[in-house]
Every structure is written in C-alpha cells, then in structure tokens.
Design a protein around this nucleic acid. Structure first.
Length: 373
DNA sequence: TTTCTAATAT
DNA sequence: GATATTAGAA
C-alpha cells in the first residue's frame, strides 16, 4: 500500500493532481477531497520524517492548502460558481472570464440573448436547477428534491425540505412539499457567496427584489383550491384569505390565492356554464384530455364533503381549464384542447352568472393547469 | 407575435 | 379584496 520512499514525491504530486481534479467538483466529491487531502498530508509527514528535503514541491505546498485539518475549511470557499463551468484552479482567471462575459452582456444588453445567457450561466452554476413548473404530468412527485433552489437565491437551504407538511390530509403529501417548503421566502439578500448572487446583483442591481418564483398550481393544489372554494360558497363569495386558510397549504400566500382566484373567476366568467333549465336534458361533458367525458356524478364538483373529503373534480391531465362544453364537438381527439384553452367561446350564452355555487353546485368544472403545458 | 398565467401594483 | 398591469414563459 505504501509507496516506496522513492516514489513518495511522485505520489504526493499525483495526489495533488488528483485533488485539483476533485476540487472542481467539491460538491460531488467532498469526501474524496478530504481523503486525498489527508492522504497528502500523511505522505508529507512521512516524507518529512524520513527525507527532509521534500520542499521542492513547494508549488502546491501551501498555496491553497491550508494546514492540517482543513477538510471543513475547504468547503467554506468552495467556489460554487466555478463548479460546472471550468476547471482551472486559479480564481483570478475565473474572475476575469466573468468580467468579460458581463461586459459583453452589457454591451448587448437589450438583446434577449442576454437573459438567456445569464440564465444558462446561472443554470450552470447551480447545476441542478429545475424550473419546477414543468413537472410534466405527475406534477409534484419529484419536485421535492429540488425545492425551489432558485428562489432562495442562496440556493442552499436544502435542509428543511419536505418532511414537515408532508401530509395534509393523508393524501396530498406531494404537493405539500412542492408548495410547502420554500414557498414565500423572500428573495434573499444575496448575501451568500454562491453562484446566484453574482447574477442577481447584475440582474436587478438594486432594483426591487427579483420576482418571486411562480407558484405552480398543481392539480392537487388546485383541487384544494376548489375544495376551499366550494366550502366557501363559490368563487364569488369566497375571499382569498378564507380560501387560503381552508386550503391549509403551507406557505401559500394570500396574494397567490388571490391571483389564482382572479384567474379562476376570469375563466369561469369567460366560459360560463350553461346550467339552465333546459340544459338539464343532458349532463355536461367534461373535457378530459382530448375527449369529452360525462362524469358519473354530474355536478358533484361541489358536493364533496368539506373535511378533506374526496374532491370530485374532474381534471384533465393535460391541465387546462376545461370549461364544460355545452355542445361538445364530435368527439374526436382533435386538438381542441388548445383552442378551448385560448379562445374558449361557448357561444355567448348570457352568462348565467348568478351561480350560487353553494347550492347549485355550479358546475364550474375547471381543471387544473399543470403548470407545464 | 400572441396568449396565458402568476406576480405585483393600485 | 377587487381589479389592473406587468412579466415570464409557451
């Protein structure tokens, strides 16, 4: 195991070389770094113990290498921003590069590319950035892992992640984490020396804090919303605050609810459901995915039990506010979704708006948007 | 370029 | 709390 004394120096150098490599990924290989460092130390001690003239390797010697037990220290100034970009151990170069980049950005400021560039830069810095909104379909499940790194700015606050709110009703553990944890934490003072900071400072300079990250109204979340809504007697009578309270979603803010409510009302207004006397002839059809479906329990939307009962909202996987179709087109799998989405116009049937959701279980059947179309 | 949606301002 | 505006994304 031990190298011959002859080879100690080479060995140490090799180790240092190794360490340099590892340093590039301090985050991924924290232990390796430490191990190698320790190994180097050990070798040096041995070497110095026997052969006293090993100074020559001076170069690396003390440079970045603190003294003995620096394992932890190292982590302190691990330049995260570097991490993914390039290898060089020299920080100066790094800095220069950055400056250059930024200059360039300045000069081309108005270009869209700027933001892109920055973003990509940022992405690179933070490595595992997940623009959480596009969770494909099963909205939340894995969001937990990433927990709005971005919004924290500092990027590192991974400690409290999920865990806590995990289960609100026993059924919704996923969104809870998505929603719950880092939801409305302030835009971060940019104190930390981690990657994002640089960008932040550039981006908004001293302006107002960066825009809050969009909350993704996952299906679950929207279900809760609807649930609360129905408990409160409908969108028109419910207030954001009440809704929020009923939703019991950790970290959900009034503003978010308010905004969502606004959108909701807008939609319901725009695509009023005709629940006239006449319409009783046929139950409305819900748009699910690409097809219209007739829910077994028509009008059940508002009937669910108040207490964490099952929500009978019909949701479309594709995530769209699916207005109840008065006259469903020939059921085909044509891309109606998109259209409905944007210009759903169920023939201006005088908005029978007086919907008293509470009683009539107004069929505002709305489906959740899964953030990522 | 337009549209949607969430955030923010009023 | 309601509504209007803004901003980011698709």
């Amino acid at each position: 195991m031990l190298p011959l004394k002859m080879g100690f120096r080479e060995y140490i150098e090799a180790l240092e070389e190794e360490r340099r490599k590892i340093q590039v990924f301090p985050k991924e290989l924290p232990l390796s770094l430490e191990l190698v460092t320790q190994a180097i130390e050990g070798c040096r001690q041995q070497l110095s113990g026997t052969v006293t003239e090993y100074n020559l390797n001076g170069q690396s010697e003390c440079s970045e290498q603190t003294s003995t037990d620096e394992g932890p220290v190292f982590e302190e100034f691990i330049p995260i921003k570097k991490m993914a970009s390039q290898d060089s151990v020299e920080e100066e170069e790094e800095e220069e590069n950055e400056d250059e980049v930024e200059d360039e950005q300045h000069s081309h400021q108005h270009r869209k590319t700027t933001s892109d560039k920055r973003k990509s830069d940022w992405l690179r810095s933070v490595q595992l950035w997940n623009p959480n909104p596009p969770p494909t379909k099963e909205d939340v499940p894995r969001k937990a892992n990433v927990v709005e790194v971005k919004r924290n700015g500092g990027a590192f606050q991974p400690f409290q992640r999920e865990e806590k709110s995990g289960v609100v009703d026993g059924k919704v553990n996923n969104y809870a984490s998505a929603i719950g944890k880092a939801p409305s934490s302030p835009p971060v003072p940019a104190t930390s020396s981690t990657g994002p900071v640089r960008i932040d400072s550039k981006k908004e300079e001293k302006g107002q804090a960066q825009r809050k990250q969009r909350r993704c109204w996952s299906q679950e979340l929207h279900k809760r919303f609807l649930h609360a809504l129905q408990q409160l007697g409908g969108a028109d009578s419910a207030t954001p605050k009440q809704i929020r309270e009923l939703m019991k979603v950790d970290g959900l803010t009034n503003d978010e609810v308010k905004s969502h409510l606004q959108k909701f009302r807008l939609h319901t207004r725009r695509s009023p459901i005709m629940h006239n006397n006449a319409s009783s002839q046929a139950a409305p059809l819900f748009l699910v995915g690409n097809i219209f479906v007739q829910p077994p329990e028509y009008g059940a939307v508002a009937t669910s039990s108040a207490s964490g009962g099952e929500l009978t909202t019909v949701t479309a996987p594709t995530g769209i506010y699916a207005p109840v179709a008065a006259h469903p087109p020939p059921v085909t799998n044509t891309p109606i979704m998109k259209h409905l989405h944007s210009q759903e116009r169920p023939h201006n049937h005088h908005s029978a708006q007086s919907n008293s959701p509470a009683s009539s279980s107004s069929t505002h059947t709305i489906t959740t948007t899964s953030c990522a179309p």
